[in-house]
Design a protein around this nucleic acid. Structure first.
Lengths: 142, 142
DNA sequence: TGCATGTAATTAACGCGTTAACTACAACAA
DNA sequence: TTGTTGTAGTTAACGCGTTAATTACATGCA
């Protein structure tokens, strides 16, 4: 059945939900001149160590063309370093730089506060339930 | 508590879920050279009749600057018409045109099939549950 | 070795999201 | 009537999403 009102439309609901959540994080990122995607890339590099571009794009949920632009921006600010992979001139290896680690460390506490607040207001049980449903939806459609 | 793996991160999960769902609709829209946002605007105009720009942007979940661009594109293809409101030279009234209605009618059956398929694979119960949780999340954060 | 095929990354083109600035008009008060 | 304040839309600037094309390098086969 088609959703009659847009509020019960799944694509719309997912869009609005994401907007609502990201609105909480955006000011923090904007204060440090980092976009949401740049932040995801930094986090992956921080947690996973040196990674090749393809894997980085996959882990950070960013498309290759976007990653190219993000790498340029982050490299320009010395948050990351970019090197060719030894043994394969096509591949590129990205590594987080000290300035990048510093930013991660600086923002993590604030990030924790925001996430905790969302979890507390929404409810731990409901959050787990929602994550389960989303995971199931992704599995089924992907 | 911070999500340790990105798969259990709420923003990520919402992003992926939306991606997964939209992937089903995108080919249909692309086949008719209509973007997702243009489609939302057309649907609102189709269901709600002539509407002013501000209300249209709100209903279609599109920001004003985006709406300006969308209006240009849709007007250029004669899918909608754009007129000044009588009595207030600032306001703009948008109306769906015959070509726009034709597109809506042409795509609605296909849209129904896709939506039904998602609901069947995911489960009616779970879909309702998911929509409830999303609505609750939006309420709490918005 | 040389050529075809495949792969990683980049570039290009276009549209939307986001924020801020700007224009045009309306409403209201002096 | 005039000047101020407020509102509706638009424009501008920048970054990302998306798709397609392109470049650089690897790999495999003759």
């Amino acid at each position: 059945m088609l959703p009659e009102n847009t509020r019960r439309s799944l694509p719309m609901a997912l869009l609005h939900a994401r907007e609502a959540v990201m609105a909480r994080f955006r000011p923090m990122l904007a204060a440090h001149d980092v976009t949401e995607q740049q932040w995801r890339v930094l986090r992956v590099l921080s947690e996973a160590g040196p990674v090749e571009a393809t894997e980085l794009a996959d882990r950070a949920s960013v498309l290759p063309p976007s990653l190219t632009r993000i790498i340029k921006a982050l490299e320009g600010r010395k948050f990351i370093t970019r090197n060719k992979a030894e043994g394969d001139g096509r591949r590129v290896v990205l590594t987080i730089a000290p300035a990048g680690s510093t930013l991660i460390d600086a923002l993590s506490p604030e990030r924790r506060v925001i996430y905790d607040d969302i979890e507390q207001r929404f409810g731990h049980e409901k959050l787990e339930q929602l994550l389960d449903l989303l995971e199931s939806l992704i599995e089924g459609e992907g």
